[in-house]
Design a protein around this nucleic acid. Structure first.
Lengths: 195, 195
DNA sequence: TTTCCTGGAGAACGTTCGTTCTCTAGGCTA
DNA sequence: TAGCCTAGAGAACGAACGTTCTCCAGGAAA
């Protein structure tokens, strides 16, 4: 007799396996480059079950982006709250986390920017997912700016978001994580100037 | 008898029409979403001539990116040299030009970032085209920083590039050109701090 | 007029994709 | 054991893609 997993986990284990495979493949190679058949193979799941969990590829893409949004922002905020000793250290911690991400071997830019560039013109769902993600990032950074007691928190928050997005795309295209350092320095200068 | 165009122009008129159609369609909807047949129709050219000018879609994509690179950077530098009264005005002029671009009705982000997100993982040609484009932009901004007599021109140039790329992606996803204003203000603050 | 060459229109080919359908094996209930 | 339901494996389908091929009209050359 084999060991049984807990009920709830076993229940959506296929769904999780599919999402794991989608996350890896879609992020690595882009959405249109990955077929449902390859996805099925990677997830180790039958086509019937794949379409049972996600009625269409669009649904799977939406779920992929949704899960990636929460995971990415959770990882960022967790790192910042854990590694920033003081409030003043928070902006630097953001870019430290980015630097570590950029140095990851399979880093390939922002999934939302990539998806938007690929499908934004044809898929309203992708566009709004990207918009929600970037708005949530902006909200977080604006809140951070507000906590810093800066003169115009909305302005600084927006500028930090520009630096984050610029660093991500630059690091992806250049293939080097250095952009995070320049961005961090710029962020510190902007915070200092905004007081 | 109809009027004859000049020889050289008539010679590659089909090529130009193809590139014009490719520029519009690829930029508007992404590369993989546009088929060669639709391109042929938009260019008003036979399939035979299309494949005579560009032996494969990859070649057309490369030519599309190449022409867009030179046009984009030419337009930027022309605007800056024309609208910046003093050297100090140059950074602001860069972001003024971006703002005007963002407000264009068919603005849809950076063609190179979009192409990279879509095909960077599968096409070495697209990756290196994007890399060359961003490096050329970085060189221009670094030169600009050097002319401003700043302490670390390479650092400031890189930071201006981050702001430019961040503003482009943010404007594209948010659908608003406001990012250019925040980026311009950040650029001025960074220039002032770098002296 | 006949022949030859160019180029256009679009049919055709082979592949790939998203999605559905068929067939079958195996486990549960009676 | 007999009947039934589930789910897996993968064939099948219709559409779309990149690319090539066929056919034919029309102009230049002799």
């Amino acid at each position: 007799m084999h060991q049984d997993e807990p009920r709830a986990e076993a229940q959506d284990e296929p769904r999780t396996r599919i999402l794991d495979a989608a996350d890896k493949l879609f992020y690595d190679r882009g959405i249109q480059s990955v077929g449902m058949d390859e996805l099925r193979t990677a997830a180790g799941v039958s086509l019937k079950r794949l379409y049972g969990c996600f009625p269409s590829k669009n649904d799977l893409v939406a779920a992929y982006l949704d899960r990636r949004d929460t995971r990415w922002r959770t990882a960022l905020t967790a790192y910042v709250t854990q590694h920033a000793a003081t409030l003043e250290d928070c902006p630097s911690a953001v870019f430290d986390w980015l630097h570590a991400w950029f140095a990851t071997p399979d880093f390939r830019g922002c999934a939302f920017i990539n998806s938007f560039g690929e499908l934004g013109a044809t898929s309203q769902a992708v566009t709004s997912a990207a918009r929600r993600h970037k708005e949530a990032l902006l909200d977080y950074l604006t809140e951070l700016a507000r906590d810093l007691g800066v003169r115009e928190p909305a302005l600084l928050g927006g500028q930090l978001a520009l630096l984050v997005n610029g660093a991500i795309t630059t690091a992806a295209i250049s293939g080097s994580p250095d952009a995070a350092r320049d961005a961090g320095a710029a962020a510190r200068a902007l915070v200092a100037a905004g007081r």
